[in-house]
Computed example of a mutant assay.
Amino acid sequence: MVQNGILENFSIDDYGCLRFYNRICVSDVSKLKELIFREAHDSLFALHPGGTKMYRDLLESYWWPGMKRNVVEYVAKYLTCRRVKAEHQVSTGLLQPITIPEWKWNCITMDFVTGLPLSASWERYLPLAEFAYNNSFQSGIQMAPYEALYGRRCRSPICWMKLSERKMIMPELIQETEDIVKKIRDRLKIAFDRQKSYADLKRRDIEYSIGDKKIHDVFHVSMLRRYRSDPSHVISTEDIEIQPDFSYEEKPVEILAHEVEELRNK
């Protein structure tokens, strides 16, 4: 049907692979989809993106019916993400969007990461976290930050595109860069305005004076999140032998990190 042109937008490449809008059509095989999800979500090049980022990253290379629903379900059932995902209550005051930069590198911001484990081995994964963030889809600019800076996505195991040489003279390169920057600024303006309009619906402008009492955030039942069951979350229990003095023998379950330190002999 594809070769006869009956199915529109479908084609077969030189390797005999079925494609839809030049994206690989994935067969309805659960193990194959699970493998793709693990590479796009659990691998060191991904570092657990959210449902939207993961879907947009996969959409550039793969397609199958109901893919977005499958991605959302996979992320929702991932227990680690459910435990560490931050929940925020509505803050007081109207939302104040940040200023949109005029050009690349015009404004540089810094994020502080807290709550890291005490193990001395986590810092080796920081470059991977930086790569995963800069090479994943950002809804505000409708592209990856790496693509916004350099004009294309950086190749990764889940998105391995072909590189081609582009020969452009300086005026054309400047014009193309200006068009991209303008497009990004317009998208950021739309995203900020939309975010502010939604946020201010449940906020009110408030001013504090000297001597006013403030209420700090406390735990509330509204911060509880819905749990989505999954067979992989079931933890098997083992019988523990209790001593007469109600003590028991502790056994290590898993080594989370290790470090080798060489002492210099004097």
Score class of each variant (00 low, 15 high):
V221L: 08
D57G: 01
R23Q: 04
Q142S: 11
L47M: 13
I180N: 14
S229E: 07
K202R: 15
E207W: 10
D57N: 12
N4D: 14
R226W: 01
H216K: 09
A86Q: 05
E102M: 08
Q89A: 12
E250W: 05
N265K: 06
D205H: 15
W103L: 10
R264P: 01
D186L: 05
D42C: 09
F20E: 01
I190G: 05
I215Q: 12
L95W: 11
L94T: 09
R19E: 09
E147G: 08
V71P: 02
R228M: 07
S164G: 08
V26K: 00
I98T: 12
S61H: 02
L201E: 15
G115E: 14
L94D: 09
L163E: 15
H41P: 00
E250S: 07
L44E: 09
C154F: 09
W122H: 14
G66M: 03
N265T: 04
D13G: 03
N106I: 02
N22M: 04
R124P: 03
S121G: 14
I190M: 11
H88F: 11
V29L: 05
I12L: 01
G151E: 04
D239G: 06
V26D: 01
I108N: 07
Q138W: 04
P157L: 04
I215T: 10
E34Q: 14
M143E: 05
E254N: 14
L94W: 13
K182G: 13
D14A: 15
L95M: 10
R187N: 12
I24A: 06
Q89Y: 12
F112Q: 03
N135L: 04
L188C: 12
E60D: 02
I180T: 08
S229G: 11
V90Y: 03
V26M: 02
T109G: 06
I158D: 02
T109P: 02
W64I: 00
H220G: 11
S61P: 00
D217P: 04
I108E: 10
V90T: 14
N106A: 13
I98D: 09
P97E: 12
C25V: 11
E8N: 12
L116G: 03
D245S: 05
S236A: 14
V234M: 02
L58A: 00
D111W: 04
V84M: 08
E73N: 06
D42Y: 07
G66V: 04
F131Y: 13
V218G: 06
P145M: 03
N106T: 02
K202E: 13
V71T: 03
R56F: 08
E130Y: 09
R203W: 05
K214V: 15
D230W: 01
I180C: 15
D245K: 00
L47V: 12
G66W: 05
E238Y: 11
K251R: 15
I235V: 13
D179V: 05
V72G: 06
S61Y: 00
F20D: 01
P231R: 00
K213W: 05
D205E: 15
E102W: 07
Q175D: 07
F10R: 02
V26H: 01
A40L: 08
E176D: 10
R187F: 06
F137A: 02
K104Y: 13
Y198I: 15
T177S: 13
S27T: 08
Y133S: 04
G140H: 07
Y150M: 06
